[in-house]
């Protein structure tokens, strides 16, 4: 059970949600925005967090939007991962959303995965490879900014702000794609490595989770992968070492092992998406 009492709010508009968050803070309660709740409920039960108030975003229509609008695909932050897997308009995202088990995917949300406390945040990878825009709402109202402005290793909204939607240009969502997810034991494990790749006109774009302490897109690695002429295996080996980040090294896998998984996955991606060599 969750030992501490809390206040539960179910707003129906963006403004109500932001007001409820501000009011809870004013009351001295620690507020959390709630979507699927898979992380909040389990972390609260274990005493890792102590929410004083929850603001449930599932009844705010903008947070549940899924579809096309003005040449963009719109993904509400409170959509469940199974809703995204089933819809499929952004194939790389549909593949990247196949994390955890089918039952948990009926609750775990896009926004919860991206804004949550666990370091993997795998569903952000496809968005990092596009000109995705993040729509946020907070005490100052609404703003829409390039995702890269508010996501660096983790989502960084302003005080009291929450993620409403991610929007992706339709043309980018249908680019050729590649994904490899490597785990230690069952396929439901947290990833040792997840590599997501899109092949755009200018070449391969790539982003990685699991190997480092946060999801990351690396332009340096992309430059090496897109070098003309060099053999795929050589480019993959050099790109794997070009992220400039410390590779995770723990009891589940050594840094050397993870780096080898990354190298192998990069080589596969180059070969599958038509890089020479």
């Amino acid at each position: 059970m969750i030992p501490r009492n809390l206040v539960y709010n179910r707003p129906e508009t963006l403004a109500e949600a932001a007001s409820a968050f501000a009011a809870a803070r004013e009351e001295g309660l620690q507020p959390y925005y709630l979507a699927g709740g898979t992380e909040i409920t389990t972390f609260a039960r274990r005493g890792l967090i102590a929410p004083g108030a929850l603001i449930d975003l599932k009844n705010v229509p903008e947070c549940r939007q899924l579809g096309r609008e003005d040449g963009e695909l719109v993904f509400g932050a409170a959509l469940t991962l199974n809703e995204i897997v089933g819809e499929g308009s952004f194939p790389l995202l549909a593949a990247a959303a196949k994390i955890v088990d089918n039952t948990v995917r009926n609750r775990l949300t896009l926004g919860g995965n991206i804004a949550g406390m666990l370091p993997y945040r795998e569903t952000v990878l496809p968005f990092l490879l596009t000109a995705a825009e993040a729509r946020l709402f907070g005490p100052e109202g609404e703003r829409e900014v390039p995702l890269a402005e508010v996501f660096s290793r983790r989502l960084k909204p302003g005080p009291g702000e929450f993620l409403v939607q991610l929007r992706v240009p339709e043309a980018e969502a249908s680019l050729p794609w590649f994904r490899r997810r490597r785990v230690k034991q069952s396929r439901l494990d947290y990833p040792l490595l997840t590599l997501c790749v899109l092949r755009a006109g200018e070449g391969i774009r790539l982003a990685v989770a699991g190997a480092f302490d946060a999801p990351v897109r690396s332009r340096e690695a992309e430059e090496i992968v897109n070098e003309a002429g060099a053999p795929a295996a050589d480019r993959a080996a050099r790109a794997a070492g070009a992220f400039g980040l410390r590779v995770r090294d723990d009891q589940r896998a050594s840094a050397e092992y993870r780096e080898e998984l990354l190298r192998g996955a990069l080589e596969e991606a180059i070969r599958e998406l038509g890089g020479e060599g």
């Binding site: 539960y8 179910r10 709630l34 709740g37 898979t38 409920t41 389990t42 929850l54 449930d56 599932k58 199974n82 089918n102 039952t103 948990v104 009926n106 609750r107």
Partner: peptide, 19 residues
């Protein structure tokens, strides 16, 4: 702890009753 919510399986340990 699996139950169905509107026909879909969920793990009821991760859902608040008020939701």
């Amino acid at each position: 702890c699996t139950v169905l919510l509107d026909g879909k399986p969920v793990k009821s340990c991760m859902v608040l009753a008020v939701e």
